[in-house]
Design a protein around this nucleic acid. Structure first.
Length: 269
DNA sequence: ATGGCTCCATACTGGAGA
């Protein structure tokens, strides 16, 4: 498509992902971000609350219908939409009936398959927690293949806990042995791309240093000592319509901020 | 290798995060 033709079209759908690091602690900041940026679809991670405490009324008041999968203290994922209620397809990543972490939820929003995922952190590595991360990643690879086979517009959005390349971390050498950066997880991430999934932010900004997470410690945000670990991966039919992508960095700089910033994309109609 | 910070639990301290 020629650039001019793209420019005159109106973006039809804006999809965002945001690891809120505790929905109770973040509700006010989250509501402010929703009012300001008005994403059509927002995928949330790290709710850190039981499902029965999810503040669905607060989101409805803001114009969003939601589906969610919480659990006490840890994990928890949700999908919000203001363009029609998300129609849930699954709330568990297939492949391990023993896995009780709430790290995956998937819905149809309009004609787009939307998945909100929170991949395990995996530290310390090596060890059982890292093994769990790799097993979870294998399950994601299997399911992602099946999603692509449907041929639909689809997005895998969330906190992948993967730093894809040296460009995605402020100090690569310090992170080599970390569970977010070890070769095994980078290879798994590359396998997703190899299947045909498109990393929206990196595709539109191939050379730019873009971060989505900064530790709370040691003024990491002020020093811009960040990582890019929150991603939106698009199936080919959706990637064809990708118009813009970025990070709402300013949200990370506010009072009572999450340690992650929202990541967003715009999809042409 | 550790600690710095923030969240959650039923807590005055510890686990997890990344």
């Amino acid at each position: 498509m020629p650039p001019l033709a793209r420019r005159v079209q109106r973006p039809a759908v804006r999809i965002a992902t945001f690891n809120v690091n505790g929905l109770n602690a973040r509700l006010t900041a989250l509501q402010r971000w929703l009012e300001e940026s008005r994403p059509d679809v927002a995928c949330l991670q790290e709710l850190k609350m039981p499902s029965e405490r999810f503040p669905s009324e607060a989101f409805r008041a803001a114009g969003y219908e939601a589906i969610w999968h919480g659990q006490k203290s840890w994990n928890g994922v949700a999908i919000l939409s203001r363009v029609g209620a998300p129609v849930e397809r699954r709330r568990v990543l297939p492949g391990d009936p023993e896995d009780e972490h709430s790290r995956y939820i998937e819905a149809l929003v309009g004609d787009v398959v939307v998945a909100s995922l929170y991949l395990p952190n995996g530290n310390p590595a090596p060890g059982p927690r890292f093994d769990y991360k790799l097993r979870w990643f294998d399950r994601l690879l299997s399911h992602a293949t099946e999603l692509l086979a449907e041929g639909k517009s689809a997005v895998l959005a969330g906190d992948f806990n993967v730093i894809p390349t040296d460009l995605d971390v402020y100090a690569p050498e310090r992170w080599r042995e970390d569970a977010l950066f070890r070769p095994e997880v980078r290879t798994a991430y590359q396998s997703l791309l190899g299947q045909g999934w498109v990393d929206a932010v990196r595709t539109l900004h191939p050379e730019e240093r873009i971060y989505t997470f900064w530790k709370y410690l040691r003024n990491a945000f002020t020093r811009d000592a960040g990582l890019r670990i929150d991603h939106l991966l698009l199936s080919p039919p959706l990637a064809e319509r990708l118009a813009a992508a970025g990070v709402h960095r300013e949200v990370r700089g506010r009072e009572k901020a999450s340690d992650h910033a929202p990541v967003w994309i715009e999809i042409d109609d």
